[in-house]
Structures are given as C-alpha cells and as structure tokens.
Design a protein around this nucleic acid. Sequence first.
DNA 1: CTGAAAGCGCTAACAC
DNA 2: GTGTTAGCGCTTTCAG
Lengths: 322, 322
Amino acid sequence: MATIYQVATLAGVSPATVSRVFNGHTVSKDKIQLVRAAAKKLQFEPNRTARTLRRQRSDHMALVIPDIENPFFTSLARGVEDVAQSAGYSVVLCNTDEDYEKELRYFDIVMSENMAGVILASAGDRSDLSGLISRGRPIVAVDRGPHGFNIDSVMVDNRAGGIAATRDLIDKGFKRIACITGPSDVETAQQRTDGWQAAMKLLKDNKQPATYLRHANNRVDGGREAMSALLSLNPPPDAVFITNNLMCIGALQVLSERNISPSSMGIAVFGDLPFSISSAMLNKVIPLDARQLGATAARLLLERINGDEQPARTVVLRNEIG
Amino acid sequence: MATIYQVATLAGVSPATVSRVFNGHTVSKDKIQLVRAAAKKLQFEPNRTARTLRRQRSDHMALVIPDIENPFFTSLARGVEDVAQSAGYSVVLCNTDEDYEKELRYFDIVMSENMAGVILASAGDRSDLSGLISRGRPIVAVDRGPHGFNIDSVMVDNRAGGIAATRDLIDKGFKRIACITGPSDVETAQQRTDGWQAAMKLLKDNKQPATYLRHANNRVDGGREAMSALLSLNPPPDAVFITNNLMCIGALQVLSERNISPSSMGIAVFGDLPFSISSAMLNKVIPLDARQLGATAARLLLERINGDEQPARTVVLRNEIG
DNA sequence: CTGAAAGCGCTAACAC
DNA sequence: GTGTTAGCGCTTTCAG
C-alpha cells in the first residue's frame, strides 16, 4: 500500500500537504489536484492505524451488548450503526454473554485500541466502568441504566410499561397474574417487575403468592422453564406478564406444546416479539423501539466524542403505551 | 496509559525486554518477575494500535454479512466469534445491507486497518474481492461461494437441500409446488432453486407454470409479497418451497392473516425458523447450522492467517437432510 | 539473554 | 499556504 510519502513525491509536494488534503485542511486548489491525481494513481488509502496512533483516537466506537442472538440487540445495533456510519465511524460489536469478565476484557480492548467511545448495554448492574471513566473515555449506557456512574444514558420507562401491561390484564378480568422476569441483577428486569407489583396492588383480592414471580435468564429456555414451573402450581396463574421478548417465545412454546389455548391464559409482554407469525395469542405488547434506542445513544456518544462537556443526561424514550 | 518505556524504567530493564515479556519471548525468570510487577503497578496494557502499526497486522478479523437482523447471520457470527476469541482475535462485524458499495468500503477499511483477514458472506455474486486478494489479505467465503475467486469457502449443499425439500412435498402428494426464492444474484438462492427445479422434473404431470417461481428479497416483506402474489394466481399452488427463513416467516404471516390452514398449503423451508413457537405449519425444514458454518470459516481463516499456503479449499457441511 | 536504535505511516506544531 | 520534523508506542533486527 502506498504511503503519503510516495504520494508526496509523485505529486511534488510535502507529506504534510498530502495529509492536509486528506483531512480537509486548507491547501491551494492546484496542489489538491496534484495530490488527488497522485493518490489515485498509486491507489493510496490512508493508513488508519498510523492515524490512530498519532491522534490517540480511532474512528471506532464499541457497542457492548449481552446477547448478539437477541433481535432486540441487533435492532439496537442497526440504529447505532446507521448513525455511526454517517458520521464516519465504524462500530465494533462486542458480545458479552452477560458475563462481567468478558465485558471487562472488551473495555481493555477499547482502551488499548484508543476507540473513540463505548455504547454499553451492560451485562447487569455490577458492570465496572471505573477504568473507562478514569481514563476519560466517553460512554453512553443504553437500555440498562448507568447504575451509579455519572454517564449519559438512554432508556425506556420500564416501570410504566410494566404497569400498563399488567393493568391491561387486570382490566380484561384476569385475577391470578404471574410475572416471568429476568435475572435480579438486570435493571430492566427489576423495573418492569416493579411495575407489575405496583399494578397488582390495584387488585382488590390480590391472590398473588410469591411463587407467581419467576426469575429466569432472558432467553427462550428461561421462558420455557419458568412457564412450565408456573403451570405446575396449584392453582396455576390465569395470566402472565413476561418482561422480555425471548422469554415470551419460550413461554408460548410451552403453551402451544400443551395445547393450552390462548384464551385460557392471558399474556402480556414487554417488547415486540421477533419474527412472529401471528400476535393472536397476545393480550398486550409494550412496544420497544430498539433501533431508536440505538440511534439516540449513538448521537449522544458522538456529541461527547466531539467534546461536549455538559453534565450527564438521561434520555427516556416514551414507549407509546397504547 | 503507561507505555513500555515507563514499565522498563520502573523494572530496570530495556523496553525491548518488556516487549519480549508480553510477547512470550525468551526472557530470564527474574526479569519476567520484575517486568510483571512493574506492569501491574502501572496498570500497563499494551497499546494495540502501536503494535499493529509496527507488525503490519492487527488481531481483528472482519466478518462481512449482508443482514445483521437475520438470525441466521447472527448465529453465524456467534460461531465465528467463539473461535476467533479463543485464538485471541476480535471480530469486527460489518453489515452491508446487500449493498456492493458498502461492501467495498468495508474492504478498504480492512486494508487500511491491517486487519488479519476477512470472513465474507457476500452481498451477491458480483462482489469485488480483487483488491483484497491482490494485497494478499486472507479471505474465507461462507454460506455463499467464492464465485470465481480462488479462495477458501465453507458452504452447505444447497442444491441437495432444495431437492430434498421439494421431494418431501411431492411425496406428500402436493402437485402444484411453487418456489419463493431470493434475488437472482445470490448464489444460495440460485442453487436451492436449482434443486427445486430438478426435483419437479420427477413429477409426472408437471403443472408448474413459470409464475410459480418468485424472486424476492431475502426478508420478511419479500416473503409476504411473494406469497400474496402466489395466492392470487389461478390456480394457486397447493404447496411452496421457500429458500430462506425470513421469507418463510412472511409467507406464514400471509397465510395466517387469510386464515388459510396449514393443511391446505404445503410448506417446506431451507433453514430453521428463528424463534418459532410451533413448527406445526411446516412440512419440512432443511436444517442449517449457521454457528457451525461460522466456526468452520473462522478456523480456516486462522490457518491462513498463520501462514498456511495450501491451495484453496471448499468445505461443504452436510446438512443432515432427514 | 539483553540493550540500542531504527522505523511502521501519519499528524501537528513550528517555522517560513 | 507549505515544508520540516518530531514523535505516537511498539517490535525487531543487530550487536554484544
């Protein structure tokens, strides 16, 4: 690959001038022409590694997510990507499997590669951001909050969604409303569960035993297990609020396998189901615009990268609860 | 962030020795101790940008895929990631939206960042790999073949799968079997369609008008449109072979909306449906182990990165057709 | 086994 | 507006 020196020689200018041309600094028209011609001839492409080393900042942003196979996060990634790309940044996707160690390893990479910033959908509420923060690397938390760190974040109103979903089931006459939620160290799970609990207080004769609250991993198999467990209770619930998309898939699979008709079990879910064929089985879906979430986070991050120093902001996206 | 010079000073050795310690070269036990202690004290983390610049090779591999929102490709990404990570490589995910220009732009980035290699699920059969190849960058094609370029590839037997799926429908007594396939410049679509055509020749009184073959984009909306179009034919098909997962979702949505029962329309699909609740509507699914595909591709790429110079290989994964 | 020193390709003072 | 030059932090000859 050609270097700026070769281009400079061919164009009869200094390397600095070549650099200036490629960075949009002021250079006389005629030299711009010469440089462009020479660059084209040599198929010159600026070496980003060298640029990054010199500038101490790359044009990558890291997107750290807990589960790349959850369509919610891939949509979010799309949103980030769209914004990043149009600002000239590449997105490095880092999948943590909800593992704090893996997350930390990625943070190290962010530092040692001088990435411009991080968008973090954290593994849980025990993420250690201190290293990144002490080194002044911009971070935006998305979906899950900043829990204790003083950083920008973009979220939805999880509690309100939990309330709305549960209320819908109550309004439809269900009495024994269970809740399948995520791990207890995941903030979104907590908040949505809070919403469910708050709404349940409205029920006059609240027949809600503690066993109606099930924690599970946020994936399909977690939903399956939780729903199976609920069905074996006596009495089983007559409805269930499920706090994430994949667990709802799992729960519906179990119902389908046991030929339990949709009408005999009310279902409300937080977040749209991916690739569903029919929503006939669902009483209520709290919509969740992952792409918007990602795009907003990316925009905040770009502002920080460009030197914005204002105090940390929390943006709450309204999830138009019907 | 600390540098090797600071570590060297603190440890009382030369920078070269620090470098050697961190690269596993031969250094005396006692100096190793000194260096490790100093590094720990300073929280030293080697600067990968500098290393990449010097070595002319980074520890990133690019994974170029056409649609990050298709679970097939995210599973594939998981497979790549697992293998890459355990070999110390990071995966940079590049989403092309099936756009050749975006693809080329990513290839430029691969070069200008000195990435170690590329795994490519190409946008179509007109991808231009000449730049990468002339510069000696290792590439492995996955899912879609190398079409003309002399590179390693990992694929499944698409034609055989197409035949098996179609045969299953024939055996079950369907007569008017349509095919919903992908864009005509996508190799997997072509080959699966070939299989369908080959199998249809077995039907004695082959009632297959040209309109039974529909090309669509490989996404949900493409499947919806194609299925709608098929249903408005006279006579409509009594079964359909769909060459990818998302289009099948779209097709099933249309059937569901029109209350067309599964039994009156045979469906076979190439590739498992993501997050499906019940497979009752499907006659035949040709399994497709995306994760395996990705892992295999990553292994081949690692071999090339490590200097393997043997002639290009094509690995065909058997997709255990029932 | 270890140190000195060159240089990967670029950018940003600094001088003119 | 343009050229000269000093590094960014690391690896890797080359000597010893």
